[in-house]
């Protein structure tokens, strides 16, 4: 009796509760995950590289600073007026367009008219070979005793710009690799500077000019202001051939391109030339 009395009251209390839902629901939906900045950077990098590739393929004559080489040299010589011949060095600088992480361009060329003769360091234990190397123009030759001297900092390595070694010396060179390496003087079989016939390597390397890509640029001195136009043009041509040859052998997904090349001097303006 009591229950039948309470029930109608409760119904009355919840009477306004709707029987069907007036809204629908579905699974949670969050904002899409933010792209990481690394991805963005990658895309930007790719965009930049592809734009550079397009520009590198364009003819240099489109640049407002383009000139043919004799005219460019006339401007450069005028700007170097009154400077000594050794001071006024003419250089070419090329922009290298390659994907990130590609092996940098490096090599050496024998200019038809070299600026200066290179100084060469030789590691070999045989007296006979040492004499031959000296005959071919090497600056300093030696075996184990030379390594000891370098260990004790008795030799000024900054004077040398090339080093060769014979295979039997290669293992003992490892002890001074840390002093030779940063100066680019460490002979390795991969670079072709550890060879049996060092005397031939010396005669090849005499008057040769090593070059190496730094960041995106490759620059090397190719003459002085007192050289004739013809000598400078010949040097530029041999440079161009050598650099393009090296660039074509580098392994990467897309071929390595040589972009805008400028001719400049110590105090002179940079002028875009054909390369």
């Amino acid at each position: 009796m009591l229950a039948s009395f309470i029930r109608p009251v409760r119904i009355k209390q919840y009477g306004c509760l709707p029987l069907a839902r007036s809204f629908s629901s579905c699974g949670l939906k969050l904002a899409p995950p933010k792209k990481s900045s690394v991805d963005d950077n990658k895309k930007l990098q790719q965009k930049k590289v592809s734009a550079q590739r397009v520009r590198a393929k364009q003819s240099p004559s489109k640049s407002p600073l383009y000139m043919d080489i004799p005219t460019a040299l006339r401007y450069i010589r005028a700007s170097e007026v009154g400077r000594s011949a050794t001071e006024a060095v003419i250089t070419i600088t090329s922009r290298v367009v390659a994907e990130r992480g590609t092996q940098p361009i490096s090599g050496s060329i024998q200019l038809p008219k070299p600026l200066k003769e290179s100084t060469i360091l030789i590691f070999t234990s045989s007296k006979e070979k040492q004499e031959k190397c000296y005959g071919n123009g090497a600056k300093l030759c030696g075996g184990q005793e030379l390594i000891e001297k370098i260990k004790e900092n008795e030799i000024d390595l900054s004077k040398f710009d090339k080093a060769f070694a014979t295979p039997e010396m290669a293992s003992s060179l490892a002890s001074i690799a840390r002093t030779l390496g940063p100066k680019g003087l460490m002979p390795t079989a991969k670079k072709g500077t550890v060879v049996e016939k060092v005397e031939d390597a010396v005669s090849e390397a005499i008057g040769s000019l090593p070059y190496r890509q730094r960041a995106e640029l490759l620059s090397l001195p190719i003459g002085r202001c007192d050289f004739t136009d013809e000598a400078i043009i010949k040097n530029i041509i041999s440079c161009s051939n050598s650099i393009k040859n090296v660039a074509s052998t580098i392994k990467s997904k897309k071929p390595v391109l040589i972009g805008e090349t400028t001719l400049t001097s110590t105090h002179g303006p940079g002028i875009v030339i054909d390369f």
Partner: peptide, 8 residues
């Protein structure tokens, strides 16, 4: 650059 070249 152009101004510099023209000054030469």
């Amino acid at each position: 650059q152009v101004a510099r070249l023209n000054l030469i």
